[in-house]
Structure formats: C-alpha cells, structure tokens
Amino acid sequence: MKRLSWFNVTALTLGFAFLYLPMIILIVYSFNESRLVTVWAGFSTKWYGTLLQDQEFLDAAWVTVQVAFLSSTIATVLGTMAAHVIINAGRFPGRTLFSGMIYAPLVMPEVITGLSLLLLFIGLNIDRGIMTVVLAHTTFAMCYVSVVVSSRLATFDTALEEAARDLGATPFQAFRLVTLPIILPAVISGWLLAFTLSLDDLVIASFTTGPGATTLPIKIFSAVRLGVSPQINALSTLMIVVVTIGVITASLVTKRNAVRRAEEERAGAASA
C-alpha cells in the first residue's frame, strides 16, 4: 500500500480548496440575514423567499428550462446522427466539410457564434424569441453530443449491426434494437451535456434572444454587473445543489449498471 507524500497531500488539499471554496462561501452567504453580502448578520432564508416570489426570475427559469429541454433533445438526435455519419458512413461528397463543421463550433468563440446567428436571423427577418435561442443552442450542442457519442461508437463492433441486418432487420430496427442500447450511456451523457451547456449559456443567448425570452443567465448577468446580490447567491445555491444532485445520481446509476452488467456476464460465463 502506497502512501501519499506530504507534497501530494498539500497539492490536492490546496487545489481542491481553490476549486470549491468560492462556491462554498457563496452558499454560506446566501443564508446571510444582511443585505450587505460581505457582513455576516445571522442565519436567514429570507432571500430564498424573495427569490421565489420574484415573478421575473420564475419566468426566466421557465424559459431557460424550455430552451434547454428542446435544444438538448433536438441536439441529441442530430448529434447522434452526425456521430454515426462520421464513424460509419465511409466516404461521401463533402465529408471534410462535414467533419469540419462538426468540430469548428467547439473552438469557435461564443461571441462569434452569437453574432453570426443573430445576423442570420435578422437577415431572414425571423422574430427573435425562444425558438431562435433553441435553434442557436441546438447548433453548438449537437457538435458536443456528436463528439461524446462518436467516441463511444468508435469502439462499437459494426458486425453486430450487420448481423441484425442479415437476419432481416430494417436499418432502423437494427439501430434501435442493437446499436442504440449499446451506445445509450453515451447518448444520455451527451443529452445531459447539451442540457447543462444550454442552461449555462449567456453569450449566445444574449445575441439570439428577443423580447419575452430572457433566460436565467441573461437575468443573472444583468443583475450582477453592478455587484454581488444576496438574491443571486440564493439562486446560484439552488442551481449548484440541483446540478450536484443530478451529476452524483447519474454517476451512481451508471456505476450500478456497470456492476450489474459485470455480474450478469460472470453469471453467463459460469452457466455456459
């Protein structure tokens, strides 16, 4: 059994303290009684109360969830298709352009993506609102999904799908019954990634949104530009808690599934 040296312990402690202290301090101060966020004046949950009564924040939260749900779902479908194309389609005309367009949005600065989409929407005279933000988010999120899914598809044995086709399955059946169950964990984590990217995005949403479609990040940004506010601390705490529970649950479920699969395989090997 190897022991950690003092150097490694210090590095890990300081590193993780740096990563987590700001968020912990933010959570602690969200329970501060005082309006002055820097002076501790006793425990209180009143900022959560004012937050839940603030109609503007509730509206923004509802818009954000709608946008994130729609865009991540469309992005997952399109991104899985794109991953399938990149890994399995072989050569087709314009392949280089296609893979270029898949990878370029990943490194494109958000200000450029946002600006170019806004200019497109203005040019087509499309009224800006929830739908334009969904279109914008879908476009960059599908690229992330396709990267996640294609890394899983790359290790997928295509002979399985071919066997299903030989046994009479249609291409769609072969995909649904054979390929999809195997790549499903990657598809789900792609969806989760797309969902959080959309929840989080400020820049692209600011460019492509219109009246009546203010998302939560836009609302937060305009509120904190002038300084720290206890209400935003409360909102941030809620978002951090939701994301943390979500991520930990997802990882526990994946872990349990992996363990169960390993057990099934062992049982299968024993009975054979």
Binding site: I25, L26, Y29, P217, I220, F221, I232, N233, V247
Partner: peptide
C-alpha cells in the same frame, strides 16, 4: 476525478460570479 469534473457541470457564470464576492 468526480471532484474535478463536478465544477465543470456547474454554471460557468455562477462560478465567475462567486469570485466577485471574494
């Protein structure tokens, strides 16, 4: 690994904002 990845899932905007108060 989980501890490193978790902040990545948390909102970027909120993490920048948390520094403002510090």
């Amino acid at each position: 690994l989980m501890l490193v990845i978790l902040p990545f899932w948390t909102s970027f905007l909120i993490r920048v904002y948390s520094l403002m108060g510090i």
